[in-house]
Write a protein that binds this DNA or RNA. Structure first.
Lengths: 219, 219, 219, 219
DNA sequence: CATGAATGAGCGTTCATTCAT
DNA sequence: CATGAATGAACGCTCATTCAT
């Protein structure tokens, strides 16, 4: 059976365009959208200044292109999860958590850009896209929860948005504060690449504890 | 009994300076630091452009002044909490949560500015200030937790930073997504000022559930 | 007989005003008129910014005041020289040279300001003052020369302005290039205060040689 | 025989850049560096304000570019003079004087800028360049003088720097005071272009008289 | 398809000056 | 008599974008 992942159909960019997107992502993440000039991007990417407007139309549209490109990878791949009959509802939630943490750690740069954009939401196009994304994720989450409720494993009256916010919020906050995390636990944490793995494990387990409390009858 | 709140000693600004700070806070929150020009601030505040440099030295120092002014109000007033002998450890945690949610809702604008600054941390002076703040809050939290552990009410091996991140993350995420919260629960939520109250209650209760899971023996 | 020197009637300034003039002279000499802000002057002089406009009317008028104050001391005191019957014409010239070198070294700061102003002559008031000064000095010089010519000691057809320019030009150029002078003759020149004395002697003797060539029959 | 003039290798500017340099030279000469805004230059040159930073990087670098461009033409072309065996030492000095006067009159604007910069020397890059220039010219002059001394035509103990200062100083002073020169000798001087020629002749002859006095045994 | 040249607008800042006290 | 507060204008510079080639 053919399974066309969404990004399969997404507009495909040339290598140069991808290079621009990657550079833009990095700079937007570290200096913010307004703090990054197209000169910065062009210089860092080793391309002509005019290329960005040429390829993407404008700085704003470059940002949109970045969001379209990156969010297509971020969408929770949950359809198969919903259909799955072998996993218990909470096991599915766990898969979801694993997936989200994994992606957030993998794509930290873009997550920073996204978080910043959500804060300011100056670009209506992107706001729309993000709203759609949130809606979809919330719907998926709601369905998973409903399934657990039907099976009697999850309690009633679960606030879906607060539940989403819990997952997203802890992840974001932890990603943002990695340095502080390292600093505060300096003797207990590994360094380098192991740190990422360690933080991923801790974060995942922590969120699972939270979700158990949110979803199960007696927290 | 005399109780000198921290802001009692804080540098006091003239009415005009406070007006500038307030306007800057609002615009920084909605358009970001780099997206806000001093002309924007001056116009919105109804003052001359030159006044900002005149009063604060530079745009950057205005930002720092804003942080110094606002963070003095944000510090968790926890000393008395620590000394208190009537409340159980978890009741103290609850006070902490109430306090934090209360402040975050009250001072949403500045929280947005702060979150954004934490993401980009381009200003070393502010980063230092924020680090100090995080450290202090983490230390307070650690002490509260240790107390609970000594009394046998909290489990061992609590990750202080993840615990902090849970509270802060959920609050931030919820504040940032208020519109989505309203939209997603549109039939169930009140509007206007009641919404703020409702979200505060929900958020507080939600976080208490999470903290119970984090701190108590069986999650 | 009463002899009221010109500066006798000059406007007398308060101590504070003199302090401002002194500071302005120094800064104008080192950074130029346009490169010096009244803030610079006020800060360096330890007075309020508004004082300058208050005392002198404007930055421009401060400059004029400086010129009026300083040029009154610079005018060649030549009247008595002209009347003197004991000195030979060339001895009188020598007195003139001594006097001019002495003053230029003594008042280097102001000479720099004056040279700069002569170059740009943006201020008509000052230009007028300087023209008057030049005219007077040229007239004096012309008279001295005429006296020498009458006595048959100086040749005819002496170009007065070129003669003035020779004296002034060498002095200026040497003052301006003191550092280079020191650098180029590093082993042969004394340091510190002696350097000033040494340069004064060399300069005076040098100019006397030049004037002998200019004025005497066979060069 | 190939004769690569120094400017042959100098960085070549586009016509527009040369136009900017020319305009900047003129305005710097008449209003000073700090008294000239890049807006002034842009307006006078009929180009966009941004072009100056675009072409030269900054106002300061424009100034440096001007100095580099113009000083390459100013260097005394003396090598061939030194090797020449037909001219007497003093004839060589005369060539030098002619050359210098010629250039100063031709390039009055730049000479004013240079004189001003020497006075204030705020730009270290330019100061370095000027020092190099002065050093070179002094070295050349020293060599010429030494040659004359060896041949027994020039006296010993000639102060090279004072000698240089004499030439430069008189030229500068005369250029600066052209208007006064004209005014003082108003009946005797031609007007318009002839004035330049007349002043050049007078100046050259005058300096030759001075140099004869400086260099020959009995002044 | 790609790029150096060029632009108008706006940036944060500093200017000399004025004004209310 | 003296000064802190305040101002409009201008400063040098950088911005995102356009255009001719």
């Amino acid at each position: 059976m053919f399974n066309f992942a969404p990004e399969f159909f997404s507009m495909s960019y040339s290598e140069k365009q991808n290079q621009i997107l990657l550079t833009a992502e990095k700079l937007f993440a570290n200096k913010g959208y307004d703090g990054t000039s197209i000169r910065d991007i062009a210089e860092e990417a080793g391309i002509n200044i005019a290329m960005i407007s040429y390829y993407f139309g404008s700085k704003e549209k470059l940002m949109q292109a970045l969001f379209e490109e990156r969010t297509s990878h971020i969408k929770l791949r949950i359809e198969s999860l919903l259909k799955n009959t072998e996993l218990t509802p909470f096991q599915k939630i766990e898969v979801l958590i694993n997936d989200h943490v994994q992606k957030a750690v993998e794509r930290q740069q873009f997550y920073k850009v996204m978080l910043c954009e959500q804060l300011l939401n100056k670009n209506p196009e992107i706001s729309k896209l993000l709203l759609e994304l949130k809606k979809q994720n919330a719907d998926y989450m709601a369905e998973l929860i409903k399934e657990g409720q039907k099976k009697g494993e999850f309690k009633k009256n679960v606030d879906v948005v607060l539940t989403m916010n819990t997952m997203t919020g802890v992840i974001m906050q932890t990603l943002m504060n990695q340095e502080f995390y390292k600093y505060y636990n300096n003797t207990k944490t590994p360094s380098g690449k192991d740190f990422h793995e360690s933080i991923k494990t801790n974060l995942t387990n922590h969120i699972k504890v939270l979700f158990k409390a949110i979803l199960s009858y007696e927290a």
